[in-house]
Write a protein that binds this DNA or RNA. Sequence first.
DNA 1: GAAAATTTGTCCGTATGTATT
DNA 2: AAATACATACGGACAAATTTT
Lengths: 244, 244
Amino acid sequence: MVGQKIQRQTGVALWRQIADRIRTSISHGDFDETGMVPPETTLALQFGVNRHTIRSALGALAQEGIVRAVQGRGTLIERKERLSFPISKRTRFSQGIGDQVRETRSVLLASSEEPANAELSGQLKVDVGTKLVRLETLGQADHRPVSRATSWFPADRFGDIAEIYRTTGSITKAFRELGVPDYVRVVTEITATHADESDLSDLQLSPGAIVLVAQALNADLDDVPVQYSISRFAADRVRFTVEN
Amino acid sequence: MVGQKIQRQTGVALWRQIADRIRTSISHGDFDETGMVPPETTLALQFGVNRHTIRSALGALAQEGIVRAVQGRGTLIERKERLSFPISKRTRFSQGIGDQVRETRSVLLASSEEPANAELSGQLKVDVGTKLVRLETLGQADHRPVSRATSWFPADRFGDIAEIYRTTGSITKAFRELGVPDYVRVVTEITATHADESDLSDLQLSPGAIVLVAQALNADLDDVPVQYSISRFAADRVRFTVEN
DNA sequence: GAAAATTTGTCCGTATGTATT
DNA sequence: AAATACATACGGACAAATTTT
């Protein structure tokens, strides 16, 4: 918690910087002994700001459901979560975090058909204009959203994948039904950026939050690309682990 | 460039959000045809803000050395960088990005000895209190800082690593001189957070920027841990790629 | 070369958000 | 709760430099 100073006049309000730092500390387990955030006056002293500013920060965290202020007692930590997502040859959403949460679920938000543009054709190794199925999905762990993904599949092989996914809630099962018994992760690209508007609503984030973006390519056992996806994770809820 | 809307009253100033988006577009190659950013009036219309707000955003990017405004002509793109860092069994700083830049260099910022705490002892598989060498290093590509790392090594095997690293500028070479001909990446954990004060100065970032944090464990060929490191990368300058 | 159009630079003022006291 | 100071964002107007016509 200590260490870095708060920056003024940077385009990022003090209350937001402090909220981000406290959120990180909570997910880091810094306050696990008491289960509470330090008193507002203590935080104000630590961060070198006025207590009002601390209250703005804690108010934002309360809005996110991370803390709950109780008059006379203090500010209780309601939730601290940072799921670990393994990235490997056999990366799958539900299996990877299955042992960290009670229930994982995938929800189909939307689906459509669209022609491959330059980027998609390059990734999936199809001609530009080839028909693709696009799925918009939401990954949940214990009823809380953790990832929002857009996936593309060649329509000739996987034209019905939306319907199968809707009923099974699993890409792996949908692939199996469509004649792909197994698939492997070819490459994953990881970047980070600020949350955009749809991240905010889909992942239930507060504005200014950070999202980890994973662009992944999956191929069948003959090395033919079957899925290209762009997944966005709430950075303060997940961590990627690459094991070699 | 299009897509997400700009968020108001979120604690993150509009000019900062816009600067982040333009920076991403530049590194994405969106303006490669002209080598210039669109005119301020065009951007103002696109983002739905006043031209002055666009000027604040472009001013921040000019401060970073990414663009340069020329009266009467437009705003020229000076530099577009997003280095790709491969993460694999044989991950090394200089080799991985060697083909993307002309020159890579590592600089030793500081070194010290310290006893292993609970976390470090768990990672390096040594007893708590075991003497470790800590190195603070800065990775540069073409004279621009890209990563800032803190590394720990067991002092019994690598007591002199600081001195050797200072002269060679390479962990790989230092290991070799100290009897470790080769080493492999065991695991890498990736998270993202806001830049802290030392990130800002070491990586020459503007406040509010995002850093990708990679916690890595390296082991020798007998699977004995030799290095645990926490590296911080400017998120808008790098991308991690995991190839399976 | 001259005029027009385009684009960045600077100035004024006003309203709102942020942070402190 | 209120007063104060500063940062942020907007709107308009004009100047200066460059490109286009």
